[in-house]
């Protein structure tokens, strides 16, 4: 299950991900991002309440980040739990996306 709570902070959109980002919820995640990306300069993905990921989910996240960057939207990922960060780290995301993306 995944719930995406969207809020606005000036020119930035904040997406709070609650639940799991996996093969069942990745489409819901992509849809939420697509709805929120209009006219924003920055997007913050708050993962404090994100408990689990799978390979399809992380693949979706990767595509979303790449696509937003293509549109010059600055992406930040924050409050990642230690467990999920371990997955990101093993996949080399900090290296690939730049360490500064994680806050």
């Amino acid at each position: 299950m995944l719930d995406v709570q969207v809020s606005t902070d000036g020119k930035n959109k904040i997406l709070r991900l609650v639940g799991e980002l996996d093969i069942a919820t990745v489409d819901r995640f992509k849809k939420s991002v697509d709805e929120a990306r209009e006219d924003v300069s920055g997007m913050i993905l708050d993962m404090a309440k994100l408990g689990f990921v799978d390979s399809t989910g992380v693949g979706g996240l990767l595509n979303v980040v790449k696509s937003l960057r293509k549109d010059s939207v600055e992406v930040k990922v924050c409050n990642v739990s230690a467990e999920v960060y371990e997955v990101f780290d093993l996949l080399g995301l900090p290296m690939l996306l730049g360490k500064e993306i994680f806050e």
């Binding site: 093969i23 990921v53 992380v58 990767l62």
Partner: peptide, 24 residues
């Protein structure tokens, strides 16, 4: 622990290898 493998059980290790080849 935070990494779910249910999708791999259904589809094989392919998506995971694809992800690794996309990232690290």
């Amino acid at each position: 622990p935070a990494f779910k493998t249910s999708d791999l059980r259904a589809k094989g290790d392919g998506p995971l290898i694809q992800l690794l080849l996309d990232s690290k």
